[in-house]
């Protein structure tokens, strides 16, 4: 899922300093699962902003709505009536949701409440870690199910490098050397020979080097 975290509340308040009424739009997708922008977080932020503004003697009317997800335009449409009379929309979605909301309401001030961090998962409740580098061409079948693109600090494809010491990365003693993990796992699987195969250079044009990407499936497009 996409992992996001809420911006400092003072930064969010500053973005809507000149607004009298705002809509806080939560998202029940990834950001709800990573406890950053679901129903609960949306209501907490609304309450905190109302209190903050009342204390400043400049009351704020804050209404809330949580879309099924904001990365599909059809789920933003139900917000139309709520958006009509607000001065701004604070989106608690990832960067994708914020942009779809901004596109839907071209005359509205749309601001992000979250910092979109990375693609990852949770290790325990409340702790998330980065797992995928979105490189556009998965190589996990060659690396024992461990992604060197994102889990190696250098994203190198022929590790480990000289900075690998006792299984840890030189960047931090808390970061495992991804290539050590890959080697250990391939060895345990009896597939070390796979690591000796000559690999062609990675096609980075399928990653961000190729500019903004699109994915198309002709067979499911509704005319």
């Amino acid at each position: 899922m996409i992992i996001a975290q809420q911006k400092p509340i003072k930064e969010i308040a500053a973005m809507i300093a000149d607004c009298k009424k705002v809509l806080l739009a939560g998202c029940q997708g990834c950001v709800a699962v990573c406890l950053a922008g679901g129903d609960k977080e949306t209501e907490i932020l609304a309450s905190a902003l109302r209190i903050m503004r009342k204390l400043e003697g400049n009351p704020l009317e804050a209404v809330t709505y949580a879309a099924t997800r904001q990365c599909d335009p059809e789920y933003i449409v139900p917000m139309d009536d709520l958006v009509k009379d607000v001065d701004a929309v604070i989106s608690l979605a990832c960067g994708v949701g914020v942009q779809y909301v901004a596109e839907r309401y071209p005359d509205k001030w749309v601001v992000p409440a979250l910092d979109t961090k990375f693609i990852g998962g949770s290790t325990v409740h409340g702790v998330w870690e980065e797992k995928c580098g979105l490189c556009g061409e998965c190589i996990l079948h060659r690396t024992g199910g461990i992604c060197p693109i994102i889990r190696c600090s250098k994203s190198i494809l022929n590790g480990p490098c000289g900075g690998s010491q006792y299984g840890k990365c030189e960047v931090s003693k808390d970061v495992d050397c991804a290539w050590q993990l890959i080697y250990d796992r391939m060895k345990a699987l009896g597939r070390l020979d796979k690591m000796m195969e000559i690999q062609m250079p990675k096609d980075w044009s399928k990653s961000r080097d190729g500019g903004p990407r699109r994915a198309v499936r002709e067979d499911v497009i509704i005319e």
Partner: peptide
């Protein structure tokens, strides 16, 4: 912590 941040 939140109450401290928002001034209450």
């Amino acid at each position: 912590k939140l109450l401290d941040e928002i001034g209450l």
